[in-house]
């Protein structure tokens, strides 16, 4: 599909969609959202990119190999559970701490966030590998 309109629109839409997807993921703990939904929005953005510029360009735009993305996501999710094991609690028990950010105050950070980022990576990788495989047919 070689459409200038689609390509131009995509150039602006993709960053926007990616920002939205990250925000949705990060706000998930307190507001609607989460890694899964965020990844689906991001995947929609990249799918749009794929249709506008072709799968090869999208693979470049993604920067990481999808297999690595999925593997890293799964590894992150498992690693987030191992913190608790080191602490002596059951696997995947949430561990929390707070980080002080100058000029912002302290933010609570916990292993569930790492877990959610892992989910994000896996879902993005899975959806994109299916979409790109279909696009390349």
């Amino acid at each position: 599909m070689n459409s200038t309109i689609l390509q131009t629109a995509t150039r602006y839409l993709l960053p926007l969609l990616l920002v939205v997807s990250l925000v949705i993921m990060l706000q998930g703990h307190n507001k609607p959202g989460g890694g899964f939904i965020g990844a689906l929005i991001g995947a929609a953005g990249f799918a749009l990119h794929g249709m506008a510029f072709g799968p090869k360009a999208t693979r470049t735009a993604l920067r990481v190999d999808l297999v690595w993305l999925m593997a890293a996501g799964l590894a992150m999710a498992i690693a987030s559970g191992l913190f608790a094991v080191v602490e002596g609690s059951a696997f995947l028990t949430g561990q929390w701490g707070s980080v002080h950010v100058p000029g912002f105050g302290s933010i609570k950070v916990g292993t569930p966030l790492l877990f959610d980022i892992g989910v994000y990576c896996v879902v993005l990788g899975v959806v994109m590998s299916i979409v790109l495989a279909l696009l390349e047919e």
């Binding site: 703990h29 989460g34 999710a77 559970g81 949430g94 569930p112 877990f115």
Partner: peptide, 24 residues
């Protein structure tokens, strides 16, 4: 317990995280 207001997400990433791990 889980420092989150979004129950759905808390269930996914904390209470039932093992299920989610299986699903991904």
């Amino acid at each position: 317990e889980a420092h989150g207001r979004n129950i759905v997400n808390v269930i996914l990433v904390d209470f039932r995280a093992l299920d989610t791990l299986g699903e991904i």
